[in-house]
Design a protein around this nucleic acid. Sequence first.
DNA 1: CAGCATCCTACCGGATACTG
DNA 2: CAGTATCCGGTAGGATGCTG
Lengths: 113, 113
Amino acid sequence: MKEKDVYKNSFDECSLTYALSVIGGKWRLPILWALNQQGPVRYNELKRSIHGITNMMLTQSLKELESYHIIHRQQYLEVPPRVEYSLTEHGESLMPTLKALAKWGKNVKNSLS
Amino acid sequence: MKEKDVYKNSFDECSLTYALSVIGGKWRLPILWALNQQGPVRYNELKRSIHGITNMMLTQSLKELESYHIIHRQQYLEVPPRVEYSLTEHGESLMPTLKALAKWGKNVKNSLS
DNA sequence: CAGCATCCTACCGGATACTG
DNA sequence: CAGTATCCGGTAGGATGCTG
């Protein structure tokens, strides 16, 4: 095995860093979590269920998540305007891993007390 | 099911946030990754294998990871001083999840191109 | 060899007000 | 209802030099 091949094994650090950059940030996880639980959700509904978030942050985070194709934005041409957000396949496929991470986090937290 | 019980299901967002705060930060992942691959590693060895990290950042990150009991610091009372870092059980137990996350990240990245 | 102290900068996240 | 625009402060991260 060549030396640089070492870096391809185990887990690929770049993909990992990328994944973290996707779900990182203060509000991404709460948003994904809300979408996972509530299914298609309207903007203001989402805002109400995520305590403390501002329009600024919600809009920005939604756009970023959408650009990664993690969530889907469905706009209905109605009056008053109606927009619904939901997880895409990619978003859904993240959930099991997040659960595993949460479980791990719980263990770590418990071991410290 | 009571309304607030909804928040206990699926995955626990607080533990998840906690987990991310543990593995977050710019250098934590590269460090864990290096330790996972190389086993017990000395300080300067670690520094060399993580391109671009400074003493400041390495020391700080190691301390933080140690405080979470994710890594272990073994000091040998020798001259010159020798210190070796390695993953703890908790650290090891994180690896499968990280691999899953990396795999997911790869998929997401590929789907964008 | 392994690590600390100091200073500094960039950017993430936020408050507030406005709009199609 | 579903967003934008503008301004702003705190903190994570970094450069540099020093030490047991």
